[in-house]
Write a protein that binds this DNA or RNA. Structure first.
Length: 221
DNA sequence: ACCCAGGGTCATA
DNA sequence: TATGACCATGGG
């Protein structure tokens, strides 16, 4: 997994799918809510839950922090794990308000902010990195199930490496281009949803093979 | 009637 | 450190 491989895959994905304009949300706070609700959940279900929150005029950190958990869970129902996510969302919002909101949090270093996010119960490495990249525009490469699947199909990784091993390895190889990280992860998800299915030798493997071929050609020059 | 989805926590060995 | 159980809805 070196720089040339990663750049070639990026160009292949970008030319295949075009810019994805992520994250699909109107505000940074909505990005954060979506990042928590989409944990192991199809995005279409998250959209319903966020739609409920908007309709109830509840898409606001202070209001969610104050909202009774059982009450909030009703609106989160379509996104699954609604009891767990009601807790997580309330805990996150309490933390967010206590920290002084978006403008205050912006002043932290990326590392400092990441540690603080990870200290919130219910925020794991991927959710934290979604928030860092898509709500705070920090150069953090998000590792998700699609990333592991694609990269292991390409033969670049085993797939069960620790999260930080993959993130730091990719960041070291790619450098710190926020715009590219934003687009890259979105493209991997797009590719995963469209054709890189769980079953081996899916259509996504064809693009992977093409990519490997292109990389081999570059190596010969 | 399955399998899967833009994870994380907790208990156990 | 590394598995496994658990959380739960909606689409294919």
């Amino acid at each position: 997994m070196n720089r040339r491989q990663l750049q070639t895959l990026y160009r292949q994905l970008l030319s295949q799918y075009g810019p994805q304009h992520w994250w699909p949300a109107d505000t940074p706070f909505e990005v954060m809510v979506g990042a928590i609700l989409t944990q192991n959940t199809a995005w279409t279900n998250v959209e319903r839950a966020i739609g409920n929150l908007k309709r109830e005029h509840l898409l606001n950190p202070e209001l969610i922090a104050r909202c009774p958990k059982a009450h909030l869970a009703v609106f989160l129902r379509p996104s699954g794990y609604f009891n767990v996510k009601a807790d997580r969302l309330k805990l996150f919002c309490s933390w967010y308000v206590e920290m002084g909101g978006y403008e205050r949090l912006k002043f932290h270093t990326t590392r400092g902010l990441r540690h603080r996010l990870l200290a919130v119960k219910g925020i794991g490495p991927e959710t934290a990195d979604d928030i860092l990249l898509y709500a705070f525009n920090r150069a953090v490469f998000v590792i998700d199930a699609y990333t592991r699947r694609l990269f292991s199909r390409l033969g670049w990784i085993k797939g069960d490496e620790p999260y930080e091993t993959l993130r730091l390895g990719i960041e070291r190889a790619l450098g710190g281009n926020v715009k590219q990280y934003n687009e890259y992860h979105a493209l991997i998800v797009k590719h995963g949803k469209d054709i890189c299915r769980p079953t081996p030798r899916c259509r996504g493997c064809a693009l992977a093979a093409r990519c490997v071929g292109a990389i081999r050609k570059l190596a010969q020059k």
